[in-house]
Structure formats: C-alpha cells, structure tokens
Amino acid sequence: MAGTKKPKLAVWKFASCDGCQLTLLDCEDELLAITEAIEIAYFPEATRNVVEGPYDLSLVEGSITTEHDAQRIHEIRRNSKFLITIGACATTGGIQALRNLQNVDDFVRIVYAHPEYISTLETSTAISQHVKVDFELRGCPINKEQLLEVINAYLNKRKPNVSSHSVCMECKLRGTVCVMVTKKAPCLGPITHAGCKALCPAYNRGCFGCFGAKETPNVASISKWYAHLGVEQSEISRILNTFNAYPDCESKEEECER
C-alpha cells in the first residue's frame, strides 16, 4: 500500500442493534493494522470525525424499515464503490422482519404510547432488495474473523474465503459431536450458513440459525425430522422464524417446493 492513497472506509447504520459494527471495534489486536491499510472515513460509532465521500468501501449494517432509510440507502450506494452488508438485518431483514409475518400497525399500537408519532414501513427488508450489494456477510452478529477476512480480501483484491455450506461442516471440522443425533435437539445447523465455527453446538446446544439459510437449504425435510423427534409444530415454526425469519423462510420453502 506504500505510496498509494489509502482506500476510504465508511460504516453505515440502518435498523439494527449496532452489534455488527461493534465487531469492527472488537478487532482490538488488528485495528491498528486495519487503519494502516484503510482510512476510516465515516464511522460514527467510533469517531465524530467525518471525511467526505465518495467512499471506496462501505459496510452497511441494518435493514430498511422506514421510507427515509429506503431513500438514504440509494444515496449511500451512489457514494460507494464497493458495498458490503454486514449481519442478519442488512442481509435478510433481521429479527425485526418478524413484522413481515404480522400486521405492523398491531405492533405499533401495543408497543407505543403515542402510535401517531411512528412512521414505519410494513416490512423490514434486506439491503439487497433496494440496491446492488457487492458482498453479503452473514451472522447475528457477524464473526470477527470473517469481517477481517472480507476487508482483507477487498484490500488484496481476492475472493473472500467465506463458505456458504452448512454449520455441520464446521462442527465436524472441530470434532464436535452432533447434538441433533445424540440429544435429539432441534438444531438448525444442517440448513444454516457456516461462519460461526459452530459456536452453539460446541456448547452442547442446537444451532439458532443466526447466519441464515445455507446454500440449497432443505427446510421441508428437516421440519419433518424435528416432528419425528417429537418437537411440536408451533415450536418448529418458532425455531424457523427468529434471526432470519424473512425472507429466508419463504425462500427456503420455495426451495423445497421446487
């Protein structure tokens, strides 16, 4: 990078909990090396200092839930050469996409003392449903090593080593014993995108599916097997509708129907 201008990095927030952008700050040991290689130009969670765009690399956290945000993301896209979504919210709509399965006005009435102040869309949607996204990094929150890998791959102009196979592969690589087979736990690992290094099964519990659907997920088959293991239908539905309820669930169902 010596002698060349450092690329400018921006970190943007939409409807989210901040956990994913916090992952960048969690890169404590690597932060200095990151700032050597890239200029942190816009990152309000870390600094009030703002360097104007356009930006070479934008990391986008959060989903689109308001009309204002639906406009803002277009502006960010115009100002960004390379745009990467970080986390379940930005990539699939996140936990707040549970609203997509219900009437949002019902929620607003129950939650807020003055619903008239609330201006929100009926759905929570992924960034890719609004603008072109160059790469989607999954997780709720994202995994620190994977974030570093993606930034690293961008800087070195190579493809990131981010696999879209199952969490099971990660369990087996680390030698973790399958909780679905031994404990009959309704684990989402076989249909979930890898990236967490099989964190939950390593602590002896089923995968929650924080990383969303893997490539070619077979929801119909695994649902049938959960029922076979004695899991109630309502529980199966709850398991499949948490971190990545929408649009993954629907696309999963479509996948099965094909």
Binding site: H165, S166, C168, M169, K172, P190, E215, P217, N218, S221
Partner: peptide
C-alpha cells in the same frame, strides 16, 4: 434428494 439436507455430515464422518 427430497430428504437429503446436503449438509455434508455423511462425508465428514
């Protein structure tokens, strides 16, 4: 194929 999860467990074990 309708039952297979393509999770890769069989090959790993």
């Amino acid at each position: 194929a309708e039952r297979c999860l393509s999770c890769g467990n069989c090959t790993m074990v």
